[in-house]
Each structure stands twice: as structure tokens, then as C-alpha cells.
Design a protein around this nucleic acid. Structure first.
Lengths: 298, 298
DNA sequence: TTGAAAGCGCTAACAG
DNA sequence: CTGTTAGCGCTTTCAA
């Protein structure tokens, strides 16, 4: 019997099995779009996690070109996956509520649960990471006029990094100065544009804290084009420690975020949720200060 | 009627539909593992391609830790996807033959069809790209002792890059010297180890052509540790032009490979194969020489 | 044109 | 404990 199965190299039909058991053995990942250096490591972790747990991985980007934002537009649902990993703002609150009501397993990545829903969430220790970074800039490097170049509006990672920044200032008796805040984005272009806007203001600036390393790259470029030397004229620091960071000129001081681990951990929580209905409400992965030359360290 | 459908926000069940129609509207991507800088852009192209064509994307890594290499081990098959994108050596020849016999749509990425099967394939113009690069090193920069640090054994991209290298040497009357060839891999670690082995030989070397930019990064590190200056003591060039390359010290001379476009193009071919049963047998995407300081250019 | 019925390949529940 | 059957939700076919 088993020999015959081998011989015909039979393999069960997933759709039929899924229909009968109402389980697909597939986890879905929903994101807005695939771009930036962040995505590679994250997906690596997620893929490893799904595979280790015997699940398949289905990926879907909600980044539509046109304005057709029909709610049920996205292709992942309770019908083709056993659970969903939702990255930042790829799904709107209404959809999250619908899934929650349907008791469908969802884990949020880098975004907290809408009020009242308590969907599990996995992210970094953004605030304490930023706090360590800015503490260091103030205490060891002696900077006091530190600008913050924020990430995209509404991004929680950026929000908490700003909170850590403000906390560090307050702890050292430095008044928060709104003219030192500039909106940016999590990419090179926005970082460059942001730093240009900042320079136009002609406020004194010792150092710039870019909300992530991708935008820090743009900051370095913007400063170079403006004829300013890093770190002699102005220091630059980022957040994430992507692979590029140590190769930049000068090498970038930043906070290492365990991107891959976060992906794997999110899958672990989701698998728990699927299998046993429970998951930790909030998992924050620890970050680590990485000091390189861009902040003035030798 | 349609109003009722809206109101109940009904959405069809993919498994049931798949069972009835024998079509899944899903494309599968099989790769050995997710690592290196190559993967991000490639997936970006593939995801965009599938989405543009109204397909979902299922990803599977065949990189098993243990030695259980059961043929039907991998989770993607004719049962849960309408076609497969197979990256380099993620599937063995026996499996490719089985799929071919079953008339299942498959497109190969960076790997040619096993003899007799003529499965469509998408790759880069590796040979002519390497030829342009080495021609430049010889003609413009005047190097003659150029080493080649190969990629992983059996990798076709690396094979054709070596062919371009040899062709360029021959065209300029430079004898091929096997002591200038060293095996490496497509990653930083292997590049570093490869260059160390090369230096131990104490053959004269003007320049090193690393089979890809990832390994070129390792080469730069290895040379720095050996106390050699780039490009003054020795020039370094790579292939791919990943995002890091222009940020390295010194910025890396390389050949730009349209990684994202190749992914998108592979999907295009696969969709054609699924829908109309035809696809181009071989698509080679053009490459472009990118000259930066690491080769001695100002 | 519209509606009922069969069946896709599997699993689960049930009967023998 | 083994073998049979109903049914998962859809599409397709065939009859009305």
C-alpha cells in the first residue's frame, strides 16, 4: 500500500484537503509594498518561521496604484490562510475589526492593536533604543542641538523613536525645540529632502537623528551636497543597523534592531494563536546601540 | 442580488473554486534560501509581476537543514499553484523532469533548462557584461594580471561571467592563467576567504573580478586586513550593482544587472505559459557597465 | 434564460 | 478496527 503510494508518487491535493478540514496550512503576510532594506531580513525571518512550523507562506501587497480601495480588495483572507501577519498600515482598521469579529488569527507587525481589539503585536523596543542613542550623543559626545528627522506620518516605530528622543532631552534638561523636528520618511529620497528643508531653516544643529538608516543615507547625501562634513560639521545617527550602515562613509552610528528575529517571533505568536488560541499581547524585541564614526566617535 | 452580495460581504472560497476549476490563481516561487542582497530586488519584481497579472504568490524555500531530501519534499506543486518559478538549483533535475512530463508550467530563473526539456529561462547577459567589464580593465586601466573569484560551483551566472572574462583575455592576447582563478561563493564570507587563499599563492595580481558584489564586499575586507590599498595596490570589481556597491569604500566598479526586471519578466513569461501555453525559450536581460573608484578610475 | 444536480479530492463521521 | 458515505463551496453541465 505505502509502496504503491510511493511508486505513483502521490501527493494529496491541498485545495481538497483545505475544503474538507477548513485548514489551509498556510500563513498570509500582508504588507503595503516591498521596498527598502528593511524588507529582506524581515521576510527571511518570516519565511524561516513559517517553514519551521510546517506552514506555507502567502504574500500579498496592498499597494494598489489606482484609487480602488475596496475594503475586500486584498486577496488574503480567512479562506486561503489559517492566520494573517499584518505589517504596519497595510490593512485599515475596519478590516482588522472584521477579522477580529470573525475570530480570525491575526498578529500585527510594527503596529499596535486598534483600541478595544487587543490583537497581538510584535515590534522593537523603539523608545528605549532611541533613548540610549540620544543619551549617548548628549553625555558622551556633548551635543545639545539634536534634530529629529521623523519617519512617515502615523508610523508607530517613528513615533516611539521620537518619544525616546524627547525623553532623553528632558532627562538632560534640554528644552524640546520644535524647529529641530522635520518630517521625512523611511527612505533615502525623503531623508535627503528632509535634511535640505532642515538646513534652510538656519537653526543651529549639532547632530541629526534620522528615524531609520535608509533615511540616514539620504541625510548623508544631503549634507555632502550642502558641503558639510560628517561628523566634523554635523553628526548623523540612524536606527535599524541595516547591512549598508557599516559600509557608509562615514560608518553610521545607529541602533541595531533585530528585524529578522521580529519576523520569526511574529510567526511564532501567530502559530500559537492558530494552534492554541493564545499569544502574547505585546512582544518588544531588544535593541542595541552601535557606535561608529558618523557620530564623532573615533 | 449584487446588493445582497455586498451587504453580506461575501467572498468566494478559493479552495472550493480551485477544486472545481482546477486553477488556483496562484504562482509559486521555489528557491533554495533567502539570503544576500540579490533576493530583495528579485522578489520585488516577482511580486509586482504576479500582482499585475492578478495572481497570488506562494513562496517556498527548499533549504532543508537535515539531509531529508525526499524528492516530493517541497510544498509547491501542480496542486496549489498554476505555475512555478524555479530559482537556480532549488529543484533537482528529476523534479524538473517530472513537472515537464506533467506539462506543468515552469519558468527557470538564472538556470538553463536540463537537456531535452526546453523549459523557458530568464537570466542576465552575464557573458557580455563580464566581457565589457574586463575589456575596460585591460584597455582603459591597463591591467593584465586579473584574477577571477568564482561563485558557487555549478552556478550558471558565475559560469558565464567567467566565460566573458576568458573571452576578454583572449581578445587581448592575454594567456589564461589558472592560478588566477579561485573558487568563492555569492557571499561576503566566501569572498573574504577566497581572496585570502588567492593572496597566499603570491602570484602577481593587478585586479580581482569577484563573481558578484556580495563577494566583492568580502574581497575589499580581506584586502584591507591584508594591508593592501584599493585601488592603488590592487583593483576590485564585482557584478550586479546592488544598493551597497556605490556606498562602499572605495565605491565599487561593477556591472549593473536588472535584478528586479528579471523577476518581473520571469513572471510575465510564466503567465504567458499558463494562459496560452507559450513562452520565449530564453530571455537574457541586458547589463550595463558601472565605473566607480575601486577599479582605479578617478 | 434560469435553475437543479453532479462532482472536483479529500476528511470526518458513521456504520458494519 | 476497517470500509463506506456524506459533504466541504464552488463551477459546470444538463435539463427544464
Amino acid at each position: 500500500m505505502w509502496a504503491v503510494i510511493e511508486a505513483l508518487n502521490y501527493s494529496p491535493h491541498p485545495a481538497a484537503r483545505g475544503l474538507a478540514t477548513r485548514r489551509t496550512n498556510t500563513l498570509g503576510l500582508v504588507l503595503r509594498d516591498i521596498s527598502g532594506e528593511f524588507f529582506g531580513p524581515m521576510l527571511r525571518g518570516i519565511e524561516a518561521g513559517t517553514r519551521e512550523n510546517g506552514f506555507d507562506l502567502l504574500i500579498h501587497c496592498t499597494n494598489r496604484f489606482e484609487g480602488d480601495a475596496t475594503p475586500a480588495q486584498y486577496a488574503l483572507s480567512e479562506h486561503n490562510s489559517d492566520g494573517l501577519l499584518v505589517f504596519t498600515d497595510s490593512l485599515d482598521e475596519a478590516e482588522l475589526r472584521r477579522l477580529y469579529r470573525a475570530q480570525f488569527p491575526v498578529v500585527l507587525l510594527h503596529r499596535s492593536s486598534p483600541p478595544g481589539l487587543n490583537i497581538p503585536c510584535v515590534s522593537f523596543e523603539n523608545k528605549s533604543g532611541a533613548r540610549k542613542l540620544i543619551d549617548y550623543l548628549i553625555e558622551v559626545r556633548g551635543y545639545r542641538r539634536i534634530a529629529f528627522l521623523a519617519g512617515p506620518e502615523g508610523t508607530e516605530d517613528s513615533y516611539w523613536r521620537e518619544m525616546g528622543y524627547r525623553e532623553a532631552l528632558a532627562a538632560h534638561g534640554i528644552a524640546f525645540d520644535p524647529t529641530l523636528i522635520e518630517v521625512g520618511g523611511f527612505d533615502e529620497i525623503q531623508g535627503k529632502m528632509g535634511v535640505k528643508r532642515l538646513l534652510e531653516r538656519e537653526t543651529a544643529v549639532d547632530a541629526i537623528f534620522a528615524a531609520d538608516d535608509d533615511s540616514a543615507i539620504g541625510v548623508l547625501e544631503g549634507l555632502r551636497e550642502a558641503g558639510l562634513r560628517v561628523p566634523e560639521d554635523i553628526a548623523v545617527v540612524g536606527f535599524d543597523d541595516i547591512r549598508l550602515s557599516k559600509h557608509l562613509t562615514p560608518p553610521l552610528t545607529t541602533v541595531r534592531a533585530p528585524i529578522e528575529t521580529a519576523g520569526r517571533e511574529a510567526v511564532r505568536q501567530l502559530v500559537n494563536l492558530v494552534r492554541s488560541g493564545t499569544a502574547e499581547r505585546l512582544v518588544l524585541l531588544p535593541t542595541e546601540l552601535v557606535i561608529r564614526h558618523s557620530c564623532g566617535a573615533p
